[in-house]
Simulated assay, not measured.
Amino acid sequence: MNGRTEADRTETDAIARPPLVRELLLVAGLFLVYKFGRQLVSGHTGEAFRNADRVWDLERAVHLPGEGSVQHLLLHGDTLIHIANTYYATVHFPATAAFLVWLYLRRPAHYVWARRVLAAVTAAALVVHLTFPLAPPRMLAATGLIDTGRVYGPSVYGSPQTDHLSNQFAAMPSLHFGWALMVAIGLIVATRSRRRWLWLLHPLLTLLVIVGTANHYWLDAIVATAMLGIALAVIQVPRRTATTAGRGTRELAPAAPDASADDEAVLVGAGR
């Protein structure tokens, strides 16, 4: 039975894995559309600062903790704030890309699911960026926060007047946090290790970094979480079917089929 099961898994994965070239072109195309779309609102400076005042006032009205408390912790030492700035500048895209590559190679059905979720969240974020430009807290004098990237380095942004490569008025929602949370959820769903919940440290660290470096408000992460929740509710986690000799099929839980004792128990039960 084990040999047949492994063959079924291999066949299912082979069928589920989409063509590599198509996926590379698709992901690259989505990224270019998103980058171009962000540039459409890069000049809405006045509206972005008015929205920033509204967000800041709303956070105080609902008694959210001040972003300054997190930044104060990071400013205890130059090394700590430099690490936070480096994390913000270098982890976001590579971590998400590595996540997708690993799923494509090892969990192709989950890869398609994760790619769809990320695309949906990113598209929704682009709509918000177009309709609600928002200056980050590092630009808003009322916050009393400093631009840690500019002061301590490294920084991924230049002056808003001369930086034509990024839209600095696209703070809400925070895709830094939304993507990090999806990476953690995707790996928790797609693996069976008892330590897989440690992946939640990635979005937790990301949240502390984006707030402490004054690149995002708490509400930016809250809105990103809500968007991701909606996408996950609409785009269902893939469920696998294992074929057994002469017994039809049985639907397995959405977790990925690692070669573990849990998998063996499910498959043996299917054959009884």
Rank of each mutant, 00 (worst) to 15 (best):
A84R: 11
A84D: 02
A84I: 10
A84W: 01
N85G: 10
N85E: 05
N85K: 05
T86I: 04
T86C: 08
T86K: 11
T86N: 07
T86S: 15
Y87H: 11
Y87T: 12
Y87P: 01
Y87S: 10
Y88V: 02
Y88E: 08
Y88M: 12
Y88L: 03
Y88P: 01
Y88Q: 14
A89W: 00
T90I: 12
T90W: 09
T90M: 13
V91I: 14
V91Y: 12
V91N: 06
V91W: 09
V91C: 07
H92N: 13
H92L: 07
H92F: 15
F93W: 06
F93A: 13
F93K: 08
P94Q: 04
P94H: 01
P94V: 06
P94A: 05
A95W: 01
A95R: 09
A95K: 00
A95V: 15
A95T: 06
T96N: 10
T96S: 08
T96Y: 12
T96I: 14
A97M: 12
A97T: 14
A97C: 11
A97H: 11
A97N: 01
A97I: 15
A98Y: 04
A98S: 09
A98E: 02
A98W: 12
F99N: 13
F99P: 02
F99G: 11
F99I: 09
F99S: 14
F99R: 05
L100H: 10
L100A: 13
L100K: 03
L100Q: 13
V101M: 11
V101F: 09
W102H: 05
W102M: 04
W102G: 06
W102D: 10
L103R: 07
L103C: 14
Y104L: 07
Y104T: 05
L105H: 05
L105N: 06
L105C: 11
L105I: 14
L105E: 08
L105K: 00
R106N: 07
R106Q: 11
R107V: 02
R107I: 09
R107K: 14
P108M: 04
P108A: 03
P108L: 02
A109Y: 00
A109P: 07
H110S: 11
H110K: 01
H110N: 04
H110A: 05
H110R: 01
H110G: 13
H110L: 03
H110M: 02
H110Q: 05
H110P: 03
Y111H: 10
Y111V: 01
Y111L: 01
Y111Q: 03
Y111R: 00
Y111M: 01
Y111N: 02
V112H: 02
V112G: 03
V112C: 11
V112Q: 04
W113D: 00
W113V: 13
W113P: 06
W113Y: 08
W113N: 00
A114W: 00
A114Y: 03
A114K: 04
A114Q: 02
R115E: 06
R115L: 09
R115M: 11
R115D: 02
R115F: 00
R116M: 08
R116Q: 10
R116Y: 10
R116H: 09
